[in-house]
């Protein structure tokens, strides 16, 4: 346990030294909040509605944070370690690569949580957002959404032959989902064709689930999203593990 603590501490330090990961996980979502809050303000979603724009924007941005860590930072870190054979060096110690990978997943999960907490604090402070959901429902939404995006990122590292091909997969999926899932701009602005396409994106279901549980919906109202995200997590993890077992790490 002490060993795992030291590995996590080291990986935490490395995360904070990586400008991309640090900025886009902890700073960028708050900047987006300020920018779009400045443009659109915190108006009711529709006239007379009790829910305001920022009450929906914050959970969507929370999914953006999960996307940065799960689809960009974590897979690119793992792919870099694989390509440079850093895992091989750790395999030549009693610790092994699994403990390093576990620590990397753990730290990215914690940083996602911190990123979302900062976002919530900013939303509360600047726009007095109202969270109507229960704590267990929000936790469940967070866990399922994070698990699905992390497992997708994990699969990209298993499919990508090197850092370049993994980066291509990550950038492609991340940016397509970022702009077309409702994580950055509300899906009500999309034309019908984009809305249809958006329904196939995992991040769309994460956004829907998070917005729902933040608004106070019961989990049973979002069974569809939960099933999709749960199945995606299981399938991506299983395929990823299968591919990793067949890989030559040397």
């Amino acid at each position: 346990m002490k060993r795992f603590g030291v590995i996590c501490k080291t990986e935490f330090c490395l995360f904070t030294r990586d400008f991309f990961s640090f900025f886009f996980t902890l700073v960028f979502p708050v900047l987006m909040l300020l920018l779009f809050g400045g443009i659109y303000g915190n108006m009711p979603v529709y006239e007379g509605a009790d829910i305001r724009m920022m009450d929906l924007t914050i959970p969507a941005y929370a999914v953006m944070v999960m996307g940065v860590t799960g689809l960009m930072s974590l897979p690119l870190t793992i792919a870099g370690y694989k390509e440079k054979k850093i895992y091989k060096r750790f395999d030549a110690t009693p610790a092994g690569k699994k403990s390093i990978m576990s620590a990397q997943v753990c730290i990215h999960f914690v940083m996602t949580l911190i990123g979302i907490i900062i976002l919530l604090a900013a939303g509360k402070l600047l726009y007095q957002i109202r969270i109507r959901g229960t704590f267990p429902a929000i936790c469940m939404g967070f866990l399922l959404s994070t698990a699905s995006l992390f497992s997708m990122g994990f699969l990209f590292t298993a499919v990508g032959r090197d850092l370049k091909s993994t980066s291509l997969l990550c950038y492609l999926f991340y940016f397509v989902m970022l702009f077309l899932s409702g994580a950055t701009m509300p899906d009500m602005l999309f034309p019908d064709s984009i809305k249809k396409f958006s329904g196939f994106l995992p991040m769309t279901h994460a956004v829907d689930l998070m917005q729902g549980v933040f608004a106070g919906d019961s989990l049973t109202r979002h069974l569809n999203e939960m099933l999709i995200l749960g199945a995606l997590s299981a399938v991506c993890t299983a395929i990823g593990v299968f591919l990793y077992k067949r890989q030559d790490w040397t």
């Binding site: 330090c13 490395l14 054979k85 060096r89």
Partner: peptide, 8 residues
């Protein structure tokens, strides 16, 4: 050949 984490 050994590489280590970039910023360590």
């Amino acid at each position: 050949e050994t590489e280590y984490p970039m910023r360590i």
